[in-house]
Write a protein that binds this DNA or RNA. Structure first.
Lengths: 234, 234
DNA sequence: AAGGCAGAAATTGTATACGATTTCGCAGGA
DNA sequence: TCCTGCGAAATCGTATACAATTTCTGCCTT
């Protein structure tokens, strides 16, 4: 029996429960609360959210299409574990798209948008100061997406959303040191360039920022730890 | 009752029936056999392919995530009808990605890959000569994707696949003249540049090709024809 | 004791049943 | 004639039942 939790129809008005669950799972992945290799059992997830497997399957298929989970036929859904090659290609794709997008954004800045970015950066710093790595990571990704939105390119923003989503997974697997997260001030420099409307500078800063990020990854085959030992032999 | 058609388990061995159906529908959309605005009823599609709604829903959700169909809650799935803005942005995204990808591909050409592209172009010409517009269109899209594969960038190739998929829909809605399809020889010029390993030239040709394509579109609000009259008022 | 092979348990794949929502048709009134 | 409102039909959303497949367990054999 599936007794539905307190909220009969979810607090925020909308109906698509599968989308809600997908969003919750996505957020958890972005914040590294659930990590690559973990199994997402349909029954288990369904029980947690108080819905049937039908709805859970829909949500998992969405995540699968975003490359956040891998669905193994008759075996189940697992949080995706990007290969080193995938990791490199994701950042190559970002390096192809983001600098020119930042350039475009520089030409479209307004007071409101600038304020939004500055507030966003402040949140990032707060999260870092509080040691909430997961939250800082999520905010960092959102920052990049907001720039694409400022560039007024919804479709590119969506492509970027997918790539940044995967970046979060990549960081979970390949980040060199789990302690010191990027307090690199690259975002501050970016906002500075955007505020001045200097597209060329923004493009350069973004390009450098992405190179820096990539250089902080250790793209070796992930060591066969606890959960992955089984997978290494299959 | 769902009596399964001739092939009990599909000819090509594999199991993912939802993926098969999604592929069939995608192909039909690419070839303009089903056009924007058409309704894809779950029952109807299920009857055609001999599966239950469960499987059809999965397939439609895949297509929805690729922006090939729009799912209206409690109303059903319809072949997507891109807006002029969407159309412009899709081609802007392609213009951002494809020229540099062609450049990369130029540095990675081999005899085999060249032969593949030449064969592909020959097929395109054949389809055009036979007046099979739908098939020519599909081949034309595949040509662009193959270049991304030659560039050895699987992820960019996949992003491009999505964009080109949507381009097919855009062409269905906004193409100026349904008769004369692009016999522009741009693909020939592209193969020529790639064969010479001239990355700069390939990049320029690709950029020009995309500009040409966009200029052949008539990005006005689609006239409110039969099916869309109702939608115009809702 | 190690390996391998049933049989059982667990998990996913698909079909179907039922409830919710929208749409369509038709009767009634302005 | 046109609009309005109610009921029926159609269609989607979700839950559940059952089938298919994999994984686990324990016994048997070597």
């Amino acid at each position: 029996m599936q007794q539905r939790p307190k909220f009969p129809q979810m607090p925020n008005g909308k109906g698509p429960r599968a989308a809600q669950i997908a969003a919750r799972l996505t957020e958890a992945i972005h914040e590294h609360r659930i990590t690559p290799g973990m199994k997402l059992s349909e029954d288990e997830v369904g029980e947690i959210f108080g819905v049937s497997r039908t709805v859970v399957r829909t949500a998992l298929q969405v995540l699968s299409h975003e490359h956040l989970v891998t669905i193994a036929p008759h075996r189940g859904a697992f949080v995706a574990k990007p290969t080193p090659r995938e990791a490199r290609e994701v950042f190559e794709a970002r390096a192809l798209i983001e600098p020119r997008t930042a350039h475009s954004a520089a030409g479209r800045m307004t007071e409101d948008r600038l304020k939004l970015l500055q507030t966003h950066i402040a949140d990032e710093h707060t999260a870092l100061a509080e040691g909430d790595i997961g939250r800082a990571l999520k905010l960092s990704g959102q920052f990049h997406i907001e720039i694409a939105h400022i560039a007024d390119q919804a479709i590119i923003a969506d492509l970027l959303r997918q790539l940044i989503s995967r970046s979060s997974l990549i960081i979970a697997v390949y980040w060199r040191r789990r302690s010191a997260v990027c307090e690199s001030h690259a975002h501050d420099a970016l906002v500075g360039a955007l505020a001045k409307g200097d597209g060329v500078l923004a493009e350069e800063v973004m390009k450098g920022h992405l190179v820096d990020l990539l250089s902080l990854l250790d793209l070796q085959e992930p060591q066969t730890s606890a959960t992955s030992l089984r997978e290494a032999l299959s």
